[in-house]
Design a protein around this nucleic acid. Structure first.
Length: 440
RNA sequence: GACCCUAUCGUCUAGUGGUUAGGACACCGCCCUUUCACGGCGGCGGCACGGGUUCGAAUCCCGUUAGGGUCGCCA
């Protein structure tokens, strides 16, 4: 039990995207902080002012918010150790640099840059995940701290900010492990105690190398756009290198917070498996409460022009309930809901040719139309009973009635439970759609 | 090239000296079923290799191999 409060941070550079690997780093930092009832800090590493815009920062904050990873200190929320943008902290860096210059740990080189005098010794990193690798810095070139134009380099500002912001645990990608001994040397030169380190394994692309910005699926925004659920993303990301035990694969953030533990984070890199994420998304989709389902789907259906301000929410929710268990992604919603929310849907030519454009099918459909016209009790089980009875009377298989019926109602061969579909559309609309086909 | 990390089914993982090596995704069958899904049942498939240590190694040690990462006035 540590006396001091755990403080972790996610320190992304605003590059214009929130990388999926960055999202997982943020997630693990967040989980660790929450598990220990500590603080999770968001710090924007925008030292390269020219390239960084407000928009690029917004992409990060929007992404984290969407995932449900709220920060205790940082942009938008403030905090006692701000500012939380490196571009606004030059004064602090200058002061620390002066200190290094004065105690002889740093020097100006011929080009006008300031460099750190790397101690010619071995430094051991005590890492919660990777053990304690020792690095020999004998051959290591002195690192640059400040460019000749006055701007600072990552290694330096990163360390200074972690000291200033009282970060207790640095949880970051394993690609930083080799940099860590230099950071520790910097801490020592500054008279500060290094934090605890935990280098988490990398997320690899399906080919097996570090997932880069250019890789398909590297940007969180893509998943948001395709209609993945944030809880599916966080669930999947947790599974990449960590497991809650008991063979549990589907769980929420609360459970992860309760059980998260850096000691049990894997040592080896993991490949990103979109199929599994896809599966998890389906699981989460089916588990959504009606309210969440509606909130999630409404903007998608509105964008697709299927729902307007005036569409009764009951009607939308009914359609969603009908199709939600058939699909896995939000982006599939419009196509599956189209014939439920409007009647001018397109007919799949193949479906039409096979199930409607022949005398036999039309005859059967006409019979069904007649039977259903006489049905007053318009509910799924009565509809089913009626159809089955008719099939028996006509001496045909149930499918012979079902398929033309489905195509007449939806224009395609696959879709939700037919009887529930009929119930949802209502008698008047269902008969109208039959008639439309029969009169054609 | 040097240094560092890693190594269980195709993929993600459980496993911390004694298990018929468990689960999940994917894949393949069968069942359920009006379609598509869901669900159920079954199958395929793994401890990289070689040495040790031990009565006994997936588990510990060494080596080999393989993969990844880092060696910037990028972060």
């Amino acid at each position: 039990m540590s006396v001091s409060t755990v403080r972790t941070r996610f320190a992304p550079s605003p590059t214009g995207m929130l990388h999926i690997g960055g999202a997982r780093t943020a997630l693990f930092n967040w989980l660790f902080a929450r598990h220990h009832r500590g603080k999770f800090i968001l710090r924007i590493e925008d030292t390269d002012a020219a390239r960084n815009t407000q928009e690029a920062t917004d992409i990060i904050t929007r992404g984290l918010s969407w995932l449900g990873l709220h920060w205790d200190e940082g942009p938008e929320v403030g905090g006692s150790y701000g500012p939380y943008y490196q571009s606004q902290r030059s004064g602090i860096y200058e002061a620390y640099l002066t200190k290094l210059l004065q105690n002889g740990s740093a020097y100006h080189d011929q080009d006008g840059t300031v460099r750190f005098r790397i101690p010619r010794e071995s430094i051991t990193v005590y890492d919660i995940i990777c053990g304690h690798p020792t690095f020999d810095l004998k051959e290591e070139p002195d690192i640059t701290l400040r460019r000749k134009d006055g701007s600072f380099i990552f290694h330096f500002v990163n360390v200074v900010d972690d000291i200033e912001m009282k970060i207790t645990h640095v949880i970051r990608g394993e690609d930083h492990l080799s940099n860590t001994p230099k950071h520790i040397a910097l801490y020592r030169a500054l008279g500060a105690t290094p934090p605890a380190y935990a280098h988490i394994p990398l997320i690899l692309n399906p080919t097996g190398s570090k997932m880069s910005k250019r890789d398909q699926g590297a940007s969180l925004a893509d998943y948001m756009a395709q209609g993945y659920l944030p809880e599916a993303i966080t669930n999947y990301l947790c599974l990449l290198g960590w497991s809650p035990g008991e063979n549990r694969e589907i769980f929420d953030l609360d459970l992860a917070v309760e059980r998260f533990d850096l000691q049990h984070v894997n040592h080896s890199n993991a490949r990103f498996d979109i199929d599994k994420l896809y599966w998890i998304n389906g699981e989460k989709m089916r588990a959504l409460t009606p309210e969440r389902l509606l909130r999630f789907a409404l903007p998608i259906l509105q964008d697709a022009g299927l729902v307007s301000e005036n569409t009764p929410r009951e009607r939308v929710l009914g359609a969603l309930q009908l199709v939600r268990e058939k699909i896995k992604l939000g982006r599939d919603l419009p196509s599956w809901c189209s014939y439920l929310l409007k009647d001018d849907f397109a007919f799949d030519p193949e479906a039409r040719a096979k199930h409607l454009d022949n005398p036999e099918s039309r005859k059967l459909l006409a019979s069904l139309h007649e039977s259903y016209s006489k049905l007053d009790d318009w509910n799924a089980s009565a509809l089913e009973q009626t159809l089955k009875t008719l099939a028996e009377q006509l001496g045909v298989k149930v499918g012979a009635l079902v398929h033309p019926c489905r195509v007449a109602l939806t224009g395609r061969t696959i879709g939700p439970s037919l009887y529930h579909l009929l119930e949802y559309l209502g008698k008047e609309e269902s008969l109208r759609r039959f008639k439309r086909v029969l009169d054609d």
